[in-house]
Every structure is written in structure tokens, then in C-alpha cells.
Simulated assay, not measured.
Amino acid sequence: MAIKATIHKAQVQIADMDRNVYGEHSLTIARQPSETDERMMIRILAFALNVPADDLNGRLELTKGLADADEPELWQRDLTGEIKHWIDLGQPDDRRLLKAHGRSELVSVYGFAYSTAIWWANIESKLTRLNRLAVWQIPSEQSQALAKFAQRSMQLQVTVQDGGIYVSTAADSLEINPIALRRPGE
């Protein structure tokens, strides 16, 4: 018998001053048995950093993630079902990114392992023509600290200002400084 996903709930208050996006979101996360607290929390962080100000071009949604290899971790689809933004985590291979780029208006990757810079150096030359690709590295010590915030029921505040990200709970806070390995249009 297969082990089922564990359900986590997160109330996420977002104040993104860099993009003028503010709001509160209730997330239900189906955490797969093979998913770590760190990966789950990076999914929540990616949601907070990419949620649109309104739903006019579709909502940003958590997908089945690891349970479905054909879907990203998050995506924003418009009302016709077209993918506006494809968001992956970790170190996807170049074929997956090429496929995602062909299906979406924007592709973002959030790496969070020590080896992210090495992974990117190995595949960057294969992806030079992908002008709608963003690749971010979350320093692993910061992503591991973020993993300590994981609970079955969470209340998180995410503040973004001048490129810095501040995540806090009632008991603790953390500053995250993502590193842009590639921005769209580069």
C-alpha cells in the first residue's frame, strides 16, 4: 500500500514592497512522503515571491508536485488553461526546462542545495536561447533554517523589500537573500 501525502496548512501574509503585492493566502500543501520540510517550505516561499497582485491573468497554484512528473511545483494558468508561469524547485534537467519554456510564458527555478551553482554551471550553456527563464539560488543554510518553520499548521509573514526576504512566525524570523543566477531576458 502506498503512503499517502501529509496535508499541511499555511496562512501566509505577504507584503512584497518590491512588486506592490499585498495579501493573505490560505495554502493547503499535500506533502509527499519523499518531500522534505526544506522542499515544502521552499514551495511556500516560491508561492509568496510569485503570487500575482490579482487573478486577472489566472491564479498561482500549488500542483501535485513530486506526485506528477509532468507538472511543475507551482504554476499560473490563465482562464483558457494556458500556462503563464511555470515554477520548478531543485535542479531540473535541461530537457525539462526546454519543455517548460515551450509551454509557458515564464519559467522560474528555485535551487536550494549546496550544489546549485555547480548544477547551473553544467547546464547554463545548453539553455542560452531560453530568454524567459529565471534561475534563483536560495543559500542552503537559509533554506535549512526555513525548514525549521515547518509545521502541520503554520502562520507565516513574508516581507520582501529591496531584494531581501524576511520570513517570520510568532516565535522566530529569518532573512533570506536569493542569488539571481539568471534573469529573464539575459
Results as ranks from 00 to 15, higher is better:
residue 171 A to T: 06
residue 123 I to C: 07
residue 113 A to D: 12
residue 156 L to E: 07
residue 28 T to G: 10
residue 44 I to L: 15
residue 14 I to C: 07
residue 90 G to P: 09
residue 184 P to I: 01
residue 181 L to V: 00
residue 66 L to W: 05
residue 41 M to T: 03
residue 107 V to M: 08
residue 41 M to H: 12
residue 31 R to Y: 11
residue 70 D to M: 11
residue 103 R to Y: 12
residue 66 L to F: 03
residue 174 L to Y: 13
residue 64 K to N: 14
residue 82 E to V: 08
residue 173 S to A: 12
residue 130 L to K: 03
residue 66 L to Q: 07
residue 34 S to V: 06
residue 90 G to F: 06
residue 143 S to R: 03
residue 84 K to R: 12
residue 159 T to K: 15
residue 64 K to R: 14
residue 118 I to M: 13
residue 179 I to F: 09
residue 93 D to V: 00
residue 117 A to V: 05
residue 151 Q to K: 14
residue 83 I to P: 00
residue 111 G to P: 05
residue 79 L to P: 00
residue 6 T to R: 09
residue 132 R to S: 13
residue 112 F to I: 06
residue 36 T to D: 10
residue 94 D to Y: 00
residue 31 R to Q: 14
residue 34 S to H: 12
residue 21 V to L: 10
residue 47 F to C: 11
residue 51 V to T: 15
residue 4 K to H: 12
residue 42 I to D: 01
residue 54 D to S: 13
residue 138 I to C: 10
residue 11 Q to F: 15
residue 105 E to I: 00
residue 97 L to T: 05
residue 63 T to P: 02
residue 3 I to F: 15
residue 170 A to S: 07
residue 44 I to T: 08
residue 32 Q to D: 08
residue 46 A to R: 11
residue 75 W to N: 04
residue 105 E to A: 06
residue 13 Q to I: 13
residue 85 H to R: 06
residue 99 K to G: 04
residue 1 M to Q: 09
residue 114 Y to R: 13
residue 139 P to A: 07
residue 20 N to P: 03
residue 40 M to E: 05
residue 138 I to S: 04
residue 135 V to M: 13
residue 111 G to L: 11
residue 93 D to Q: 02
residue 116 T to C: 09
residue 150 A to W: 13
residue 147 A to C: 04
residue 168 S to I: 01
residue 137 Q to C: 07
residue 4 K to E: 15
residue 103 R to T: 06
residue 13 Q to Y: 07
residue 155 Q to I: 03
residue 144 Q to L: 11
residue 14 I to D: 04
residue 85 H to C: 02
residue 14 I to E: 06
residue 1 M to W: 11
residue 119 W to R: 06
residue 101 H to V: 07
residue 180 A to F: 11
residue 51 V to P: 13
residue 122 N to L: 08
residue 35 E to K: 12
residue 158 V to Q: 01
residue 29 I to P: 02
residue 157 Q to P: 00
residue 2 A to Y: 11
residue 40 M to P: 01
residue 72 P to S: 05
residue 162 D to A: 14
residue 130 L to G: 04
residue 126 K to A: 09
residue 136 W to G: 04
residue 90 G to W: 07
residue 170 A to E: 08
residue 8 H to R: 09
residue 169 T to S: 15
residue 94 D to K: 03
residue 157 Q to A: 07
residue 23 G to E: 10
